[in-house]
């Protein structure tokens, strides 16, 4: 379905995750973050978001373990930055699909 986020018409699923990551921009990220009670987005958030988008574009499966080992963020920081669901919320803000498995993003 279509949704207008931060003035841009984007395709989202019924949970509000973007279905086409190319429609994403920083204003959309900020708007989703605000909706999720996260932020305002800082450089630390953006580092995670950019990493998630890179990995998603590369087709890599992300896990909570691999995030902690990525060098981008520690497990503790990830939980602090995105309280209430580190991978779920960061994925939504990054405009990539919702984590599918028990420990994965896809």
């Amino acid at each position: 379905m279509k949704k207008n986020i931060a003035g841009t018409e984007v395709d989202v699923n019924d949970e509000g995750y973007l279905t086409d990551m190319s429609q994403w921009n920083e204003a959309i990220a900020a708007a989703i973050a605000a909706e999720e009670g996260i932020g305002p987005l800082t450089d630390a958030h953006n580092k995670v978001i950019n990493y998630l988008r890179q990995q998603q574009a590369a087709g890599a499966a992300l896990t909570i373990r691999s995030m902690g080992k990525s060098g981008v963020v520690t497990t503790k920081e990830l939980y602090d930055l995105f309280p209430g669901g580190p991978l779920k919320k960061s994925s939504k803000i990054a405009g990539i699909p919702k984590p599918g498995g028990c420990i994965y993003t896809k």
């Binding site: 373990r65 902690g68 497990t75 580190p86």
Partner: peptide, 18 residues
């Protein structure tokens, strides 16, 4: 293969997550 950590690392992960 599924990126499930060994027990010690798993406990550390859970502890780090709060």
């Amino acid at each position: 293969k599924l990126d499930i950590p060994p027990v010690r690392e798993f406990l550390e992960l859970i502890s780090d997550s709060g």
